[in-house]
Amino acid sequence: MHKQKKYIVSHAPFWHDGSRLTTKNYHIMLAVLIALAAGIVKYGVPAVGVIALSVSTAIFWELIMNKITSRTATIGNGNAALTGLLFAMMLPPTMPWWAVVTGTFVCVIIGKEIFGGLGGNPFNPVLIGMAILMIAWKDLFDFDQALINYDFDYLVLYPLAALKHFGISSIESLSAIDLLSGKQTGAIGTTFGFGLILGGVYLIIRGFVRWEISVSYLLGIFVTAFIFKSADSATYAGPVIHLFSGYTLFGAFFLATEDSSSPVNFIPMLIYGAAIGIMTILIRNIGVYVDGTVFAILLINLANPIIDKIRPKAMGRAV
């Protein structure tokens, strides 16, 4: 048996510590379960339909692409299922089946597989699918319209849309606790803030996502929203509504932290997260879109290779 010794570097072959991509992906799926369950309780069986169809078709699209390109089947690593699950969590429960199937096609094929599969994708595949659907069929993402037949005992207005169209007075009845405990309308898996935070902290503690990105992202949102609020408190909402509504918490822990499209060095991770936070608030406050999270993360994904150039100087001198 191999006996591991500390402080000794030996030549290959090395002992594998047992960590696997499959383990990581299934742990992320485990981490979103609380928020997901809250969404299912809130929206009922139609939400289950969206989730089930999204996860299954994402797996099928990846399997089909594996067959077409004659590559080893990669669906076993759980990434396709994870992509489908995260995508479904960002949709309203009334999403038509064809939009779900089209969305997972875009996520898996255009977002990931055409770049060579997992690890080669420059953007978060889930957000590629979301962005294309949001532009192509923007009415499907009008949560006020989508949830018109749902009755709740709290304000049934999508907070960010109400804020943008009717000002702060339309959402002043929403408190931070209400927002965090899911008393707000929104997508299937993004309204229960406590569940998202719990899942995110679990992933950070287990080392599956980097805290630097999540924390700097939330700080970026907080500081930028605070500056806007300080400049014009009658027009712009404070940090609370921006932190706890829309896709913010979901983006901070589960979207911005995607491996392939985010930096690996310490300073770049802080810059990357903060830049997404700043961009999100800029789009929400002065852009045309109601929730800037999707486009903000994609935009900073684009800058990721440049940001990640900031790294410690290599020791020694080139010969």
Partner: peptide, 15 residues
Amino acid sequence: AVIMAVILFLVGIVC
């Protein structure tokens, strides 16, 4: 993954 996909696909259709 395949079993999960098939089951969820059927669940999705039924829902």
